[in-house]
Design a protein around this nucleic acid. Sequence first.
DNA 1: AATGAATGAGTATTCATTCAT
DNA 2: TATGAATGAATACTCATTCAT
Lengths: 195, 195, 195, 195
Amino acid sequence: MTATPGARPVRRYDPQRADRIVDAALDVIAEHGVPNTTHRLIAAAADVPLGSLTYHFTTLEELRARAFTRHAERMAAAYEAHFRTVRSADDVVEAVTDLVHGDAGADPHDWAIAYELYLAALRDPALRTVTGSWMRRSRRVLERFVDPTTARGVDALVEGLVMHKILSTDPVSREQTREIVARAVRPATPPGTGV
Amino acid sequence: MTATPGARPVRRYDPQRADRIVDAALDVIAEHGVPNTTHRLIAAAADVPLGSLTYHFTTLEELRARAFTRHAERMAAAYEAHFRTVRSADDVVEAVTDLVHGDAGADPHDWAIAYELYLAALRDPALRTVTGSWMRRSRRVLERFVDPTTARGVDALVEGLVMHKILSTDPVSREQTREIVARAVRPATPPGTGV
Amino acid sequence: MTATPGARPVRRYDPQRADRIVDAALDVIAEHGVPNTTHRLIAAAADVPLGSLTYHFTTLEELRARAFTRHAERMAAAYEAHFRTVRSADDVVEAVTDLVHGDAGADPHDWAIAYELYLAALRDPALRTVTGSWMRRSRRVLERFVDPTTARGVDALVEGLVMHKILSTDPVSREQTREIVARAVRPATPPGTGV
Amino acid sequence: MTATPGARPVRRYDPQRADRIVDAALDVIAEHGVPNTTHRLIAAAADVPLGSLTYHFTTLEELRARAFTRHAERMAAAYEAHFRTVRSADDVVEAVTDLVHGDAGADPHDWAIAYELYLAALRDPALRTVTGSWMRRSRRVLERFVDPTTARGVDALVEGLVMHKILSTDPVSREQTREIVARAVRPATPPGTGV
DNA sequence: AATGAATGAGTATTCATTCAT
DNA sequence: TATGAATGAATACTCATTCAT
């Protein structure tokens, strides 16, 4: 009850602890993957005692969900910020190319978490609201510059290009990416104008 | 003294067992995901005793790698078969649309395995040769109809469209997909022709 | 709703548990030998649940090392205590004979552990610091009565006599032991005095 | 029944196979220790198929016993050979010193097996006939030069010196060993001649 | 309110031995 | 006669979660 002198220094009032734990969880997911994301690893990363995790989050699953939600939120916000200064359709091509080649804030660490989330969402429909709303926000951003169908296509294209860039053994060049993106961004060919 | 029928499980002579185990592993990966793919689950799915797995495959990791390799091989073969009858660029659009909407042999089960492989490859560079060669084969197929850069774009687009179809809460329609694909397949705008 | 007595095993608060586990490990090593010293056997001997072992000791190897260290420490202390009342060189002969014939605190149980440690040290150089410091302490005790070389010889002799007593089918008599020890304790023949 | 052409080359009639297996077992025991001496390791060392082991030796324990028996026989024979040219008591001192310092045919490999045998004999009384008869032969050799009690002492001393040489962190010098041995070999002090 | 000790269910893996061929 | 495939019991170890303090 009373602080015993000489006892180990007690961590004082720590209102952001839950927050710090969520961020630590994201780091662990990025570095070790969901299956290796254990209470112990997160506790160590957050520098909090083990019991603190289950005190703040009933289950590990809940903590993971919170972490993924936060990540999706951040990625969507970064996406929006990235396009804030874009004006013309030409700028869009450049901006999207930047996105694919990592010059837009999202690094491998972030993409690793994203793919962990994707796979988790594949198994857990509850997480699909997280991925779903993230995608809707991305498309909404693109719709400021292109028609909805094109937005959908460009958004999917970014996904696929990033994934192939990571998984391929001969990755795409920036030049090629720009070319590919440019084609996707062009307005639909008016019917009857030939292929 | 006498062999009581049913009293003792029969030791089966089973020359294709290793093969069956690999297929069972794929089923388990599809249904439960890599992290839940345990020896026990695979053994049950293949209807073989537990010890049989480590007899045929030194580690679980090795078995997983074999399973993923077989899956990638099958997916690539299916991809090639799917385009075998395609002749014109117009047919390509239809064929790719079929691919995205599951009318080309690959079902959610197959895609689930594919995404498990992607994530595994993200952590394990050894698996990247598997994903890499699969992608190369896909592109090579497309290059029969379009230029290499376009092939790359279309291949990435398929990836992204399928993924978003699975992860989104409002999925894309077949109509939209065709439109998006058509745009990606169009030849590049000749320089100087304007947008 | 009410705690049914006996229904659920009681979670015990048990601050000396780690210590008790180490002692239990020593008992198991003595009775079953290192190769049969399993988590299960130790847990049963210490009357603690299985998971408790790896909670307190990361690996079984670590637990074994701790147990051996404690044993060597105890044996050395007993050795020192045994010679505390010895004054003359004659007393030394008697004291050493007692040592060999088990009248000095160390029983077959203790020697069994010691030999398990020896063999373990043969494979694991880390354990050689344990055996090495134990031997140094023994010799230091003997050096209170005889010159260092003699101490070394007597110490080795004790080792060999005990071992042969255990492994031989016709063991040495107390009388013989005393005679042998007496010869080893005698001061070196002054040079030039002939044999 | 008939040799199928193209089948793997069948190992032809191999009458010394059992012998080779026993030697392989000794190698494995020396290198890996009894607890790690498995059928698989022995089969690999002997370059024979796995099933061959249980074909020739009912249990692993039986094979181990055979291996230990052979080793003890060889060690005793080497001991005898080593003393065959010894004539005087002075020569004995030198010969014993050679024994301890490894100049008598027995290397660390041999001692490792010996200690594995000792420990095994500690647990299994059946093996004590092996160790017992080995020791008797050693003593009998020494009794050609010294009285039985001295022989016993010297034999034990060798045991202890070798063991301490292996387990100690500051090993004994050849000089010291000779001195210690010399003292043990000297005839008993005639009663009444003082200590 | 907070925590570290505690635990049982689960994991991959090893291996002596059996047995169909 | 000889063997390699087969298997079940056992092993060390992990970990989410619980709970006494």
